[in-house]
């Protein structure tokens, strides 16, 4: 299972990469693998204020619909428009082209309270 160390993770399988006060959010390789073929992604609107832990996006695979939670509080500043035509990017490139949305985070320091790669690896182990 691929878990890059250049970012942090939530227990609900989102990853977060922080640059300045802007956090890019996607779902982990483990999450995309569990969901199977992604066929539709419903993204939040830019400008929306979200709380940490709030359901902000939905990923639909052939099998099921799954909520994506905001790992940090902030304002949605950008969403990945290419997922409208290529939702399968979430499967093929979960840590790159399959990113979901960007947040301008209210308290960047909270990034440190998220799981690092090794802590997230343990979360996965428990679920498997």
């Amino acid at each position: 299972m691929n878990i890059p160390e250049d970012r942090r993770y939530s227990k609900t399988h989102e990853w977060v990469k922080l640059e300045g006060d802007v956090a890019t959010v996607g779902i982990s390789d483990f999450a995309q693998e569990s969901l199977g073929d992604v066929v539709y992604v419903e993204l939040p609107e830019s400008g929306r204020q979200v709380a940490a832990g709030e359901a902000v996006a939905v990923i639909e695979s052939v099998k099921t619909a799954s909520d994506v939670y905001a790992p940090l509080a902030g304002e949605v500043v950008e969403v990945n428009e290419s997922l409208a035509d290529e939702p399968e990017l979430v499967n093929g490139d979960p840590y790159g082209g399959g990113w979901l949305f960007r947040l301008r985070v209210s308290r960047p320091a909270e990034f440190e309270s998220l799981l690092d790669a090794s802590a997230y690896a343990k979360v996965i182990e428990e679920e498997e």
Partner: peptide, 11 residues
């Protein structure tokens, strides 16, 4: 098995 590689591909 729910799938081997991908539900869409198998379908």
């Amino acid at each position: 098995p729910v799938q081997y590689t991908s539900i869409t591909k198998e379908h």
